[in-house]
Amino acid sequence: MKRIFLAGLLIFALNVNAQVQTPAASPHAELEQVVGLTEVKVDYSRPNMRGREIFGDLVPYGAIWRTGANATTKFMIDKPVMISGKELKPGTYSLYTVPGEDMWEVVFYTDDSNPLITEFEEEKVALRTMVEPMEMPMNMETFTIVIDDVMADSAVLNILWANTVVPVKFNVMTDAEVMKSIDLALAGPSAGDYYNAAVYYLNSGKDIEKAKMWMNKAMDMTEKPGFWQYRQQSLILAKAGDKKAAIEAAKKSLEGAKAYGNADYIKMNTDSLKEWGAM
């Protein structure tokens, strides 16, 4: 019994102290590229040819391929992109392909948990497109994914291995985003900008007249101010010496707080109104 116990300890010690490290057969790789204003990332593993016939043999024609090794390749975007006239929403997708001699099917799949599948569940197919492969004049030994032809509003996701490249062009919404930002900038500060600036000035002890002006602008631009906004307005008005207007704002804040059942704001407004001689 004692010998068995000692043998077990020896095996455990050998396992704990084992420090031999070997390179991965298909090393992990990450690709990041900003296209226009859209961030694109690809996470994948990179097998080598090692003298093998790849497409039509190691990777059969007509079968679903995880487009790499070890795990499914991940395609991540932070804004919508257009592929073959169809929109792919922001998110993380498994990138599957179905290689063919003449055409490849490229599928962006919503299940990104590394599923090894033999057929697609249609409800999980976010977008599919057909792409014509191109023959390269030389072999790409290591499986590679690159983003090339990077323009302000488009780029090409190139899948390369052996003597084959599969170019998947995608478009980004750069023009719409830029026009929106231009419109917002030229329209001037928003109600939220004025409100945040006013509250900051109040809490930082800065120019209270500026804070009052900004808060008045914010309230004028807001269709239905919240009771918390009226509360901040009342404090600014009181500090600016406009007690009458401060009381009016505090009463509106109190009314809104009661409607929402917010005990904290009910108490704060009640205390202020008492302090200002309105109760």
Rank of each mutant, 00 (worst) to 15 (best):
R3Q: 11
Q19I: 07
E30F: 09
L31H: 13
T38M: 05
V40G: 02
D43R: 10
Y44A: 02
E53A: 14
D57C: 08
Y61V: 00
G68D: 05
A69G: 05
I77K: 01
K79R: 15
M82E: 14
E87Q: 11
L88W: 05
P90T: 03
Y96G: 02
P99N: 01
E101L: 04
E101M: 06
W104Y: 02
F108W: 13
D112G: 00
S113M: 07
N114P: 02
P115V: 01
P115R: 12
F120K: 11
E121T: 12
E122P: 09
E122K: 14
E132M: 15
P133K: 04
E135T: 14
M136S: 05
E141K: 04
F143T: 04
I147V: 12
D148P: 03
D153T: 09
S154T: 07
S154E: 13
A162W: 11
N163P: 06
K180S: 11
P189W: 01
S190F: 03
D193H: 03
Y195G: 06
Y195F: 14
A197M: 07
L202A: 01
L202H: 04
D207E: 08
M213Y: 14
N216F: 00
D220E: 14
T222Q: 02
E223A: 11
W228H: 12
Q229A: 12
Y230M: 07
Q233V: 00
I236G: 10
A238W: 10
A238D: 12
G241Y: 04
A245W: 02
S253G: 00
G256K: 06
G256P: 05
Y260Q: 15
G261D: 11
Y265C: 12
I266Q: 13
S272K: 13
S272D: 11
M279E: 14
